[in-house]
Design a binder for these strands. Structure first.
Lengths: 341, 341
DNA sequence: ATCTATAATGATAGCGCTTACAGTCCGGTC
DNA sequence: GACCGGACTGTAAGCGCTATCATTATAGAT
């Protein structure tokens, strides 16, 4: 602001050397005499000079800036992914910019344009399961972006997507969750999940059904509800399920798409006078910071989002074309109980 | 990735015009004949050309990228500020990158360096109240950064800071909160807040004391606790306060630094068998998404963080050197009740 | 004393744009 | 028919670096 931008020329003339030499000490090359290096460094320090990363990007073709596309940061789940990615990026000397999901989803503004123009060194895209038609459109957008920069996916990445990725194995997770609940004696287990997903072998529905099959329980369509992922959605879905069924058919356990939906379910249960976990077990997913403070504390799945975000950055920067699977683990708190006969 | 990067020269030669003309249609200048414009645009579309923002920044000195420095995104409070800022930035055609607070706070990596090199068009810094010594160091860093780019502050901006800002008037807010509680009959009102702040007229302590004075209540030091801002901190602080006092001196209401601290307080109260709100009213701040789902639902302050974030971006982009005050409002839920005599 | 390898440094050509500035056309004007 | 002002379009000079050569100095080898 105050002073004119000082450039490599200023440093060079102050130090009485050529810009090439300044550039050499800037990049720490070895073929500079110690005396010259010291002289130049002194001028750099004194004038508080910072080489312009813009100009650098101009020639070196690398900008040290990455992008990440997320559905919404307000959901702490995504905030965790972002944080993990951002911190790792910083460690590696990269800057991380956020782009909203609408970059891929709508025609509100040209998705590729903004991203492509930015000449990012890479892009992480956090994908959720989407309705099949949407899904296809997103895939096209992703392929498109890939022309401009390396792309790594994170989240619910369909098995069919041929991208480097840190993917959830939601199916395996669901299967384990069902197993956990059946081990507590539950036989009427509801699943309030997201959109009906495509025939992806990793999808939660598959895991849910497999889990039921493992326990030789019937798949009951009335126990499968759909929602978008907010607490309000969860509350509405559960209430509707309960009013549509005679109380003796009410589920004794409900698996929620995520912790937000689980929070809605707990609220709905409370409103209906159903005790959690005595009459209804609830299990969420994401292990949000607030889960320990709910009443009862919410049993959830820790999906290690920060770690996944960091890993995605590593894949991006290293250029490895690997598909990895994110870790997860059950965190028992107080919202699931043995079923009472 | 796939193809060589295509440049303005490619378009120019394809369209049989000079690069200047291509540049003109790119920037929508008017002095291009309709025929030429169409011809060039067709080539641009066909080859799917995107001008490099790097090269643009090189000459035009503006990069259309902003930065924001936040303490931690995992606290939804900051996620909201970020979201508001990011969305506004996008609307205005800017990119938003996040930098961690440690940029200012530690010597872990050179703060100015990364930011200055990036040649951002502007920077938003979200400040919290800090211990006086820290505070001075941060101010120095801010002044430093200002040499390189415009800076707008947001949050708990000390009145003495001469920066454009969207500032909280925490003192006024606290005074109102105390008034609200005294109107419910409370006379023993605790405040579990952040670090003891410097003599800033906007600080919460001032508001707390003024509120007590308004109601002609004594300031009792035992009711003032300090914490860093996590639920655990809040729980610990309240527990310590309770154990240090005979039950007949226990506060009947507690004002928490933020909702996270309030959540900790509610947990501590529950653990101690103290009913909220019957025996203890709790009020938080930030109006986090989870507050309605706590038991009881937490009364809080909506500080309109997204709006504040957006406003900060507007100030930054417009270059206005204004200091504004953020709006706020009390959101009554169920954690505060009339005191029982 | 001449030659040659080596280390240090300088000159310079881009990178892909923007932006003066300098044409070129063309229909009026006088 | 020479002249002129617009409307377009082209030429070329940067922007601040990196990277490739070319150049110079130094010192050891012959």
């Amino acid at each position: 602001m105050s002073s004119e931008n000082i450039t490599i020329y200023d440093i060079a003339s102050d130090a009485g050397v050529s810009i090439a030499t300044v550039s050499r000490v800037l990049r720490g090359e070895s073929n500079v005499s110690e005396a010259t290096r010291k002289k130049v460094q002194e001028v750099i320090d004194r004038r508080n000079y910072r080489p312009s990363s813009i100009a650098r990007g101009m020639t070196s073709k690398t900008t040290y800036s990455l992008g990440i596309i997320l559905p919404k940061l307000l959901n702490p789940h995504y905030a965790m992914i972002f944080t993990g990615a951002q911190e790792e990026a910083r460690k590696l000397g990269y800057t991380m910019s956020l782009f909203p999901w609408s970059s891929l989803d709508t025609r509100e503004y040209d998705p590729a344009a903004m991203l492509a123009e930015r000449r990012l060194d890479g892009l992480i895209v956090c994908v959720e399961y989407l309705p099949p038609d949407h899904d296809e459109q997103v895939l096209t957008s992703l392929q498109d972006l890939r022309q401009y920069m390396p792309v790594v996916l994170i989240g619910c990445v369909p098995a069919s997507y041929d991208f480097p990725a840190v993917a959830n194995n939601s199916a395996a997770m669901m299967r384990e969750i069902v197993k956990y609940l059946t081990s507590l004696g539950h036989e009427r287990i509801a699943f309030i999940g997201g959109v009906e997903e495509d025939q992806d072998p990793l999808r939660r529905d598959v895991g849910y059904e497999n889990g039921l099959r493992d326990a030789r329980l019937p798949y009951i369509a009335s126990y499968r509800a759909y929602c978008r992922g907010t607490p309000g959605d969860g509350a509405a879905a559960l209430k509707e399920m309960l009013t549509s069924l005679k109380p003796e058919y009410w589920p004794t356990a409900v698996i929620a798409l995520n912790d937000l939906v689980a929070m809605g379910c707990m609220a709905a249960a409370r409103e209906k006078g159903i005790a959690v976990p005595e009459q209804l077990s609830v299990i969420g997913c994401d292990n949000l910071f607030c889960t320990p403070y709910l009443v009862p504390p919410l049993t959830s799945i820790n999906t290690h989002q920060q770690q996944a975000g960091a890993r995605a950055v590593q894949l991006l920067v290293s250029g490895e074309n690997k598909r990895e699977t994110a870790d997860w683990e059950l965190v028992e708190r107080g919202s699931c109980a043995r079923v009472r006969k």
